[in-house]
């Protein structure tokens, strides 16, 4: 069936079986391999995609559910060639090691910052609690979200 949706800001259609998982469609049909798969059962958060702005899991969503939605993957979070402030903060704070959880972490963090401009560390930890990271111990990821939040705040003040 033909499924129409918005993908990283652009209209997209795909002719595919409705029962394929979103993670497979995005990786295989659209080449968006920043959508990672770590478990296939919704436990690790690596396949996170923003659906209408909310983090959802690409391994637990069927293709048909993309119909009419606005999907953003890590590739589309910032304009081509640029970086989202949170991506900048991840780099600066050393929040990336193997990087396999990073797309999901960044998307979860960006969604949090949209909901709440200056979350505390506990709230940040809560927001990323559905995303497993085996490398960092999470601390620098929390640092990065906190740093980006502080920057966002400052930016608003000066604007």
């Amino acid at each position: 069936m033909i499924i129409g949706f918005t993908l990283n800001g652009k209209k997209a259609t795909v002719d595919t079986r409705p029962d394929r998982r979103v993670v497979d469609v995005l990786r295989e049909d659209f080449g968006l391999t920043g959508v990672k798969e770590g478990c296939g059962t919704g436990e690790c958060g690596a396949c996170t995609v923003l659906v209408d702005g909310e983090p959802r899991l690409g391994c637990l969503m069927l293709a048909v559910q993309m119909e009419g939605r606005d999907l953003v993957t890590i590739e589309g979070l910032a304009p081509e060639g640029g970086l989202h402030p949170l991506q900048e903060a991840f780099l600066e704070c050393g929040a990336v090691q193997c990087g396999f959880c990073t797309p999901g972490m960044v998307l979860a963090g960006s969604a949090l910052l949209k909901r709440k401009a200056s979350p505390g560390r506990a709230e940040i930890r809560e927001a990323i609690s559905g995303h497993l990271c085996r490398c960092t111990g999470y601390q620098k990821i929390v640092d990065a979200v906190e740093t980006a939040a502080a920057r966002g705040g400052k930016k608003e003040e000066t604007e």
């Binding site: 959802r56 809560e126 927001a127 559905g130 995303h131």
Partner: peptide
């Protein structure tokens, strides 16, 4: 319950 992405779904 679950985690934030699970609660979103």
């Amino acid at each position: 319950l679950g985690s934030p992405p699970v609660r979103n779904m």
